[in-house]
Design a protein around this nucleic acid. Structure first.
Lengths: 198, 198
DNA sequence: AGCAGATCAAGAAAAAAGGTTGATGTAGTT
DNA sequence: AACTACATCAACCTTTTTTCTTGATCTGCT
């Protein structure tokens, strides 16, 4: 419960709405710090995702397993990103996704009920949550469009350009399944580009 | 869903109460077969333990992590044992324990509600669950007494005498934390005894 | 036929888990 | 004060698991 992680959250929030000291205080105390070990799950199918989690430190992968056993990565989250099974969280229905820590991590979690309360009692907090939702939605639109219109190599290039942090930090199999290609194929793409550089 | 695993369960139950064919049938169909991979959790803190699990094949470890990060094994379960966070299961409250597969395993799970139904509608099933609870309780009493009155080496010797299967099958760190000693110390005890034999 | 990409199989490489050993420390006996 | 019964720490080794790489073969387009 270092003050640090909460400060980080508040700084993040201030990017979107400006908070008075007491508001910042109120927002911060609604969250609880949790440490999560690598490979630990914070969301699992069949259990309702009761928290929204802000990543203070570490990395997470959100993925689904199809009935045929195929693994599809839907999202990554590192510092200053959020992790949740959004469908489970906002409807408070059982989750269908897994969210697993890729590294030892620290997160700040807010309970669903608590979040509703914050939003209900404060126009500003309402605004904040709207903004991050809209940005998230816009991001996904760009992503879907890009994926539909580009081949595997372009998707990889685009991703590693936009998120060099992620590209080097997440395991290759996870990135491949995020970009919609086999891990072998991604390995070849990377190799080819590495060779091209030298 | 091999008939095999259900037969195994029924045979186990018949050790305690004798079932007519239709009763056996009814009991068996209340359970669902689930395959669990090594290192997968079937119970985790904060999630309610909704099932009682009968181990058909494989091995599990039930443990707690203290706030200081210490790991304490409370139970092992192999073939024909049960695994659950009992406090979470019977009160249907969030669990405080972890239950993890030590090997690739097969279990038969019954839902809490389903179990209540079985017991309510059948005196015999009620008896069965009472018996296994009483035996479990008696076992824990013996264990607590023994632990209070014996030193580390005796505890190990007693355990490996009573459960030679477990002693050779579960990882040493898990056994050490079950027997209440450090893994290094258990390593030394084992070494000493091995040398004594030759 | 040629391309983008999948799948399979075999290994290599890297990381993690599990176990051992020696050194040192400590609380409670004798 | 020495002894017993352990713990803790650190270094190191071994084994297992995970992750990545590469070649070979296959498939569905265009």
């Amino acid at each position: 419960m270092q003050p640090n992680s909460k400060t980080q959250l508040i700084n993040y929030v201030q990017n979107f709405v400006s908070l008075e000291d007491d508001e910042a205080q109120q927002f911060a105390t609604a969250f609880e710090e949790v440490k999560v070990k690598k490979r630990q799950f914070i969301v699992q199918p069949n259990f309702t995702n009761k928290h929204r989690s802000f990543v203070v430190k570490g990395a997470f992968r959100t993925y689904a397993i199809t009935n045929e056993g195929q693994d599809h990565t839907l999202q990554f989250a590192i510092e200053n990103w959020w992790a949740s099974d959004f469908n489970s969280y906002i409807y408070q229905h059982p989750a269908t996704l897994f969210i697993v820590a890729l590294e030892d991590s620290t997160i700040l979690q807010i309970e669903y009920e608590k979040e509703q309360e914050l939003k209900k009692n404060s126009h500003k907090f309402e605004t904040f949550f709207r903004i991050i939702a809209e940005k998230g939605l816009a991001f996904e639109h760009r992503r879907i469009l890009f994926n539909l219109t580009h081949d595997a190599e372009a998707r990889y290039e685009n991703f590693s350009l936009n998120f060099p942090n992620f590209a080097n930090r997440v395991p290759q199999y996870a990135l491949a399944s995020y970009l919609g290609m086999s891990t072998e194929f991604l390995s070849r793409i990377r190799n080819k580009r590495a060779r091209a550089k030298s």
